[in-house]
Every structure is written in C-alpha cells, then in structure tokens.
Amino acid sequence: MTPTQRRWIFLAAAVGLAAFYLWGLSGLPGFGNYPGPYGFIINRIAVGQTNATGVVSTINFDYRGFDTVGEEFILFAAAAGVATVLRRLRGERERSATDEAADRDLPTTSSAVRMVALLFTGPVVVMGWWLASHAQTNPSGGFQGGVVLATAFVLIYLSGEFLVFKRFSPVALTEVVEAVGAGGFAAIGVSAVAMGLPYLKNFLPLGTVPGAVSSSGTIALISFFVGLEVAAAFILIIGELLDQTLLIRQGAN
C-alpha cells in the first residue's frame, strides 16, 4: 500500500468518525440533566434509613456494598499480582540496601526534604485515620483514608532511608493487614447471612443521632476495614517497587 492510498483511507475514516461523533454529541442530554428517580429517592431516605450523613458512603458501603466488595478484591488481586510479578526471579540477585563500596559516599537526603517529610508524617497518619473513620459523616471513606495512610509510609522512606521504611512495613505484616482488611469486609457480609439477613445487610444498631461518628451501623466498620486493606495494598505495591529499584539486580548470586 502506498502512502497516498493510506492517507486516503485515513481521511475517509476520520471524516466518518467525526460525523458519527458530532451526531452522537448532538443527541446528548443537557448539562446536569438527571432523568432517573433513584438519586432523588436515595437523597430523601438515606439519612433516615441509616443515620449516616455521608450519603456517598452509605451507597458505597451499604446500598451498593456488594459492588464495593468486588472493587475491594480487584485491589487485593492487583497487589497480589504485583507481589508475584515482582518477586526475585532466577538470574536476579538481591544486594544489600547499603552501598557495598566502602570508600564511596552515599548521596544523602537533603535536610529540607527530611524536615518536610518528618513534619508531615504525623499529620498525614492522623488525616488518613480521620478520613477512614469518618466515612459515615463526611465526604471521605476507607479508600481515600487508606491511600493517605500509605503515603505516610512513603514520607518515612523519604525522610529516613529504605531500611527504616522496611522496618515500619515488613512485607509479612503488610500482607496480613491487607488480608484482614479484605476478609473483614467480606466477613461482615457473611455475618449478616449467618443472622438470616441478606448479604451485607446493615445489621448493627444504627445509633440515634444522624451524623454522629458512632451512628450508621456497619458502614463505619466496613470503611475501617477498607482503610486497612487499601493502605496495606498500596504500601505493599510501593514496597515491592522500591525493592525492585533499590535491591534487585540482574545476574546470579
């Protein structure tokens, strides 16, 4: 095929695509248009039904909790996949994290980076837990809180060194926490079944005050487990990548 022929084929396809695209755009509903009644109904009844004011979390962890279990296990499988793919392969060796050449100076972390990272580590941990434990009252949740918690460990890596990061997040412990997080969510659902209720039915007392941290029944508990699972999954993924970057080398032992 000559370049000229190719260009003509491309032009024909591009014109066709543009025509269909514009046709599709012209039929779109107006900006902010919402036809369905589902959202309006949820907005009206959600707080009364669950005593949780963070209605997005109510949907994620209660009404559509089953979808969220699925998402949870997508992340679980992804972290397991990363750990499997990035294991030490035959033909690769692990070297020590400290520099082997004694006469060479290690590049030190600048004190500015160290200082900022140290200053932020504590507040980031607090914020992560706050987000993970307030899904029922505020726009937040276990997922966001979990990722924020994981970044605290990245700050530890930035402020100190790799060995400190590893000491704070040993792989075995991280994997256990991840499993507890993912399993806890599923177990809450199974507990409901054991009590003769539908899977993931909100079976705990809802509390009396809408918007109180202790209200909302299983929503707060599920958010907590999601926070554990997400934080551990991200720490595991980042830790595996750090291993790859800093420790694992080509060549046999």
Partner: peptide
C-alpha cells in the same frame, strides 16, 4: 463531588506518580 476529589488527589496526584517515578528509576538503573 468531594468524595471523588479526595480519591483523585490521593491516587492521581500522589500514588500514581510515585509508582511511575519508581518504575522510571528501575528502568534507568538497568
């Protein structure tokens, strides 16, 4: 959509760049 804002901040602005930077560091070493 404040919920999505938080997810996007943590994943899009922090977690994804960290993972990409680590991957780039690994490739550069090789």
């Amino acid at each position: 959509a404040p919920d999505v804002t938080l997810s996007e901040l943590t994943v899009g602005a922090v977690a994804l760049p960290i993972i990409l930077l680590l991957t780039l560091a690994k490739i550069r070493k090789r």
